[in-house]
């Protein structure tokens, strides 16, 4: 009898523990693209290797992207991006961690939200507010999209004078994540 009681209690505790675990969604597909518009050259790079997670109850999100996964049209440019600008061997990932403002997990359709948190690029963390759209897709999936600007100087990324006409001072970043319920 005592054994049953013990087992029962442990199961109960485990149930409570599980229910305390908030409902989370993790990325199953992602697209991150950035654009640099400069007088001499427009540069685009894409990555599909970003990962993300959203905790709908805590209204928190986090994203991470391996810098080396960005694919450029010119492989030499990709090398310079990693070697000279992002120093990806020292700072292999960029991350974003934020709380969602104006987010309602029970609302169907597209909603405009703001993510307020910390964006880390090139080893430097800045407090940012990034606007974006979240759509509860209904089939247990969530789509998050956002377009925002990143100023190179804020993250200590310096562009030498000689390529000043080739690289923009502000980079446009587009992100598109599809997340599904974490099992």
């Amino acid at each position: 009898m005592k054994i049953y009681l013990k087992t029962g209690l442990v199961i109960l505790v485990l149930c409570i523990a599980t229910s305390l675990q908030a409902q989370k969604y993790v990325s199953e597909k992602s697209n991150v693209t950035f654009y640099s518009y400069a007088p001499l050259e427009d540069i685009t790079a894409k990555s599909k290797k970003a990962v993300g997670i959203i905790d709908v109850d805590a209204e928190k999100i986090a994203f991470s992207i391996p810098i080396r996964s960005f694919d450029f049209e010119k492989s030499l440019m990709q090398e310079h991006f990693n070697e000279k600008y992002m120093e990806s061997d020292k700072y292999p990932k960029s991350t974003f961690q934020a709380v969602l403002i104006d987010f309602n997990a029970r609302k169907k359709g597209v909603q405009n939200v703001t993510a307020k948190g910390k964006l880390t690029i090139h080893g430097i963390t800045q407090n940012v507010e990034i606007p974006g759209k979240i759509e509860m897709l209904g089939n247990g999936k969530i789509q998050i999209t956002s377009t925002f600007m990143v100023k190179l100087v804020d993250y200590d990324i310096t562009v030498p004078q000689i390529v000043f006409q080739n690289i923009a001072e502000e980079i446009e970043v587009k992100v598109d994540f599809t997340l599904s319920k974490k099992k």
Binding site: K6, V13, A17, Q21, I53, D55
Partner: peptide, 29 residues
């Protein structure tokens, strides 16, 4: 029992409050 119970509750709370960013590591390719 109470010790065990308390320990499990603390553990579960820890799990719930785990840093989201560190949970991403397991998703990395």
């Amino acid at each position: 029992f109470f010790t065990l119970f308390a320990a499990l509750v603390v553990l579960s709370l820890n799990l719930a409050g785990q840093d989201l960013l560190s949970e991403l590591d397991e998703l990395d390719s």
